[in-house]
Simulated assay, not measured.
Amino acid sequence: QNFSIMATGDTRKIFSKVAIGPKTIDVAVHEDFQCIIHVKRSEFEHIPAPFLSRFQKYSLSVNDFYRIRLQKLLRDEQTILRNIEEKALSFIEHFGRQYFYGMNESTLHSCLLSLIKINENEEHSLLNVHQYYTQMTIKRKSFIEQDSTNIQQCLFRLILSKLIQLVSPESVILKLPTFEEKVEQWLCNLYFQQQEHFNLGNFIQQLISKPLLNIDNDK
């Protein structure tokens, strides 16, 4: 709001008033200059009203960013992600939302957002699941890529492998019998054989150790 224009012949300069403590100075800015201030939602109510009145205000969440990027995918890829979201929500509700530590309204969309990649040309596409693996996640490859030709299944299982990390061993033992036998078996194998939930030392060792094998992400 606080700016002035100085013109001389065919040229002009725009100055914005910048306050630093009690001192206010005029600073030359580009004509396309825009000031964006990011504020945490939890801090919003503590910000003085006069400061807020100087800006247009928008509230953006992880869910908003996910929906924005989803719309930039090809239609078939959008369908895949919507199907994955529906299946993941069904899994969460069946297992019991209360059993997932830290689960909130943004958790699932944060996971889904990680499946959308942007290249140097600002083109959006789904994650190539073969490029997902690290030293920490390579054990899950057989679970995620049970059918490597089925992209939707691979990505859904990738999301499932992230969500299941949020539950305790006691919860898994309690809830596994509520699933079909086939699902119960591969969830049990994923949780107890392909992830580390019991020994912090082993977890840290996996995190910092050098790979014992060469991981070819193209295979």
Rank of each mutant, 00 (worst) to 15 (best):
K57L: 14
W186C: 10
V62F: 05
Y133W: 04
F65V: 07
Q165L: 14
R67S: 09
C35Y: 09
A28E: 13
T79I: 07
R67H: 12
Q194G: 05
L70V: 02
L73Y: 04
R97T: 12
C154R: 02
H197G: 09
L126Y: 02
G201C: 13
R67I: 05
I144P: 00
L89T: 05
I37N: 05
L200G: 02
S209E: 10
K210H: 14
Q205W: 07
D64E: 09
N83K: 13
I47G: 13
I151L: 13
E120I: 06
L155F: 01
T134R: 00
R157A: 05
D64W: 14
L126C: 01
N121M: 07
Q131K: 15
I173V: 08
F95D: 06
G21T: 07
S4N: 13
A88Q: 02
E145P: 10
F91M: 02
R12Y: 08
F198I: 09
K57R: 15
K72A: 10
Q185T: 06
Y133K: 01
T24D: 12
L190V: 06
W186H: 12
I47D: 04
S53D: 10
R75T: 15
V183P: 00
G102A: 06
Q206Y: 08
S168G: 02
F65R: 01
I5A: 01
Q205I: 05
I92R: 03
N217L: 15
I20Y: 11
F15Q: 12
F100G: 03
C154E: 10
T8K: 07
I138E: 10
R54I: 08
K17S: 11
I20C: 12
Q193T: 08
S114I: 00
D147N: 15
L52D: 03
L200D: 08
T11D: 14
F65C: 09
Q193C: 14
Q98Y: 06
E122F: 15
K23V: 14
D218K: 06
L126S: 02
